[in-house]
Computed example of a mutant assay.
Amino acid sequence: MHHYIINASIQIVPIVLDRHPYQWVDDAIAIITNSGIKYEVTPFATILEGRYDEVMKVIHEVNEFLYQKGCAEWITNLQIQIRSSGDITGEEKAGKFRG
């Protein structure tokens, strides 16, 4: 894949009863925070922005963490926007709506 900047959203939906789902989500957000990738936490998903390989690595790390730490079941909802001829940024798409 190319090396342009892409956008992605990731939403983790734990299907568990062993602990509050927000605890698993908080752990996932900590992985994203520690990755160094540009991100924004929203009420329904976390938006990621970076090079394709960087973004996909973080997505993999979140799912691998949940597996390794014993989360019994979860849904990972993803949206990924890729532009084959150059960068696609959140600022380009939503900057005019920010106050």
Rank of each mutant, 00 (worst) to 15 (best):
S35I: 09
S84L: 15
E92L: 12
S35A: 13
W24D: 15
E73F: 04
K69Y: 11
K96E: 02
A30E: 15
V13T: 13
G86Q: 10
L17K: 07
V55Y: 01
W74M: 07
I80P: 02
Q11N: 08
K69D: 13
I32A: 01
G70M: 03
R19H: 06
T76A: 13
I15V: 14
E40N: 04
V62E: 06
V55H: 05
F44S: 06
A28N: 07
I12L: 10
I10E: 15
F65Y: 14
L66E: 13
V62M: 07
R83N: 14
N7R: 13
H60E: 15
I59S: 04
I75G: 06
H3R: 14
F65E: 07
I5V: 07
V13W: 04
E49F: 03
E91N: 11
G50K: 08
W74K: 00
K96H: 07
G70Q: 09
A94N: 08
V25L: 06
H20E: 15
A94H: 07
I88N: 09
I37E: 00
I32R: 03
T89Y: 00
Q81F: 00
I5N: 12
E40K: 00
K69G: 04
Q79S: 14
I82M: 10
N63G: 15
K93D: 01
V62Y: 07
Y52G: 07
E49N: 06
T42A: 08
A8T: 04
G90K: 02
T76E: 15
I88V: 11
D53M: 05
L66R: 00
Q23D: 15
I80C: 11
A72T: 13
E91Y: 12
E40G: 03
Q79I: 10
V55A: 04
G90Q: 10
H60Y: 11
G86H: 05
T33M: 05
V13N: 05
V41Q: 07
I29G: 01
D53S: 12
M1C: 10
Q11C: 14
F44G: 02
I5S: 06
M56V: 10
Y4H: 15
I75A: 11
G86W: 10
G90D: 01
E64M: 04
R51N: 06
V62A: 03
C71M: 08
A30N: 13
S85R: 09
K57C: 06
D27C: 09
A8L: 08
V13G: 02
E92M: 13
D18N: 14
N77S: 12
E91W: 04
T46A: 01
Y22C: 14
D27A: 12
F44N: 08
R51Y: 02
G95M: 05
E92D: 12
K38Q: 09
N77V: 15
P43Q: 05
R98D: 01
N34G: 14
Y39M: 09
K93E: 02
L17G: 06
E49K: 09
E73I: 03
P21K: 00
M1A: 05
K38Y: 06
T89V: 12
G99L: 10
T33H: 11
V13H: 00
M56A: 09
H2G: 04
G36T: 05
D87G: 02
K57F: 01
S85L: 14
I6W: 02
E64F: 09
T46Q: 09
R98Y: 00
Q81E: 15
I32P: 03
Y39K: 00
N34D: 14
I37P: 01
I10M: 13
T46M: 08
W24R: 01
K57E: 15
F65S: 09
E61D: 15
I37C: 03
E61Q: 11
A72N: 08
